[in-house]
Write a protein that binds this DNA or RNA. Structure first.
Lengths: 207, 207
DNA sequence: GACATTCATGAACTATAGTTCATGTTTTAG
DNA sequence: CTAAAACATGAACTATAGTTCATGAATGTC
């Protein structure tokens, strides 16, 4: 274990150094994955010395954790920006469902390669798992709120199970869109997913 | 690059050594992931020397590739074992769909942690990506055959998109069941998924 | 039983990721 | 202007993963 003092940057140049390390780490972890990226390379890409790296971060994992926390925050911001036009009869439910799916996908599509990396690291590191779980719980809760508030229009009853099911479906749709070499149009996939969920969730079958 | 001759075991003891290395690799890669597992540890767990490891495998990656190919074969076996009772009116379509989903999940649930690891490695290694893709294409094709053969009973038309959608949904359902710390019953999830897909895919809405 | 082949071993070597720290520079405060 | 604090640097050190190979034992063949 290290005895160094990890510094919180006070001056502008310090903040800039730390930020560029975070930026470089984000890029490299996304491009090549955590284990294929080494600290010297991150420092180089950031345009700072390896010494500066270890001035602001205890070790490589600390950088990853910090990046993942920032990422988590961004996702939560996107989720919180979603407005529910419930009872505003201007927008029909299916249109809103399509909007909701698009937003959830958008949220998961922030640095999608990092998200992939996060999934992996979470499997082997409890600290990372915690951060990862926060993100997912946030999205599941959004789904839960959405479902609860229109329960009388829905045919499904087990909100807990269904929330997990649809959040997971979203997450994986992003995965296909980003990673699949199967050429499939994003719009088609979103539309099919909307269609699937609408028929599954809602009582009336407006087509 | 190495100049050694990689040996194919001729005698029983050689075969046993190689098998136990594969077995140990499978366990360790699944438990701790590829990068956190080192060759000496694999040899130790297998009960052989590090020398034997490098007698049968060019390097660590070669072992991983061989394991993944075996895994791929097992999945394909499960998929090929699925019988389609099409036109045997003894079984209704929804019951069969439930059976199909269970089987697909079963197929993806062989060494699920390895499957996770495979996903990751595929992202950074073209060789591994190829093997991974084989497995997915096999499953998508199964879905495609299933859909094509009962197209007149279905409301969906874009078979290519839908095949990918349902294969992916299956893959991710396994992921939830295996990795989620959200406590959700496997049966519930399978039933909800069946319900969702049935309503999405089929014309008639037998409830 | 003798010779060849296969197999097993682990100390030792190579390569490299991760990390530290002594030294020097820039900024801030008084 | 000067001292203190913050910051920057990269050669050098540590730790360890990955790999090789000289040596010897087990097995097969004649």
């Amino acid at each position: 274990m290290s005895n160094r003092n990890i510094r919180v940057p006070q001056q502008d140049r310090g903040k800039e150094s730390k930020n560029s390390i975070i930026e470089a780490g984000l890029r490299l972890f996304s491009e090549k994955g955590y284990y294929k990226t080494n600290s010297k390379e991150i420092a180089k890409r950031a345009g700072v010395s390896i010494g500066s790296f270890y001035m602001y971060f205890a070790d490589k994992k600390a950088l990853f954790r910090e990046i993942v926390e920032l990422y988590n925050q961004k996702i939560c911001d996107v989720l919180n920006d979603i407005e529910d036009p419930q009872n505003s009869s201007f927008v029909d439910e299916k249109t809103f469902l399509n909007y909701l799916i698009t937003k959830l996908i958008e949220a998961h599509a922030i640095y999608p390669q990092l998200h992939q990396e996060l999934t992996v690291m979470a499997a082997s590191d409890p600290d990372i798992a915690k951060v990862y779980n926060n993100t997912r719980v946030e999205a599941v809760n959004l789904a839960k709120r959405f479902l609860s508030s229109r329960i009388e229009k829905l045919r499904i009853r087990d909100i807990d199970t269904v929330s997990v099911l649809i959040q997971t479906t979203m997450e994986e749709i992003v995965h296909i869109i980003v990673f699949s070499d199967v050429i499939i149009s994003k719009e088609k996939l979103i539309n099919e997913t909307t269609d699937m969920l609408y028929r599954y969730l809602y009582k009336d079958k407006k087509l």
